[in-house]
């Protein structure tokens, strides 16, 4: 089954970037708590059942932090 992995060491400034969030057509990726200090600004694939595997998030990521695992 398709899976999206986001490398947290490479994705540093998620809240200022948000390119993958904008690129995701199906709304799979969500921002984990943009307010709280815990889990601040982490991006996570949540509703994977909507993912079509288009790979757009992987393509737009400037830090190359996103990989798709088949």
């Amino acid at each position: 089954m398709l899976n999206i992995k986001i490398d947290r060491n490479k994705c540093i400034n998620a809240l200022d970037c948000l390119k993958c969030i904008d690129a995701c057509r199906s709304g799979v990726l969500l921002v984990l708590s943009p307010y709280a200090e815990v889990a601040k600004g982490r991006i996570k694939p949540v509703i994977m059942s909507m993912c079509t595997g288009c790979g757009e998030c992987q393509r737009v990521c400037p830090a190359k932090a996103i990989t798709m695992i088949k």
Binding site: L18, G27, S33, P34, Y35
Partner: peptide, 11 residues
């Protein structure tokens, strides 16, 4: 809106 914070990163 908290939802838009989570889905769009808009605070």
């Amino acid at each position: 809106c908290i939802c838009r914070g989570l889905t769009r990163g808009e605070k």
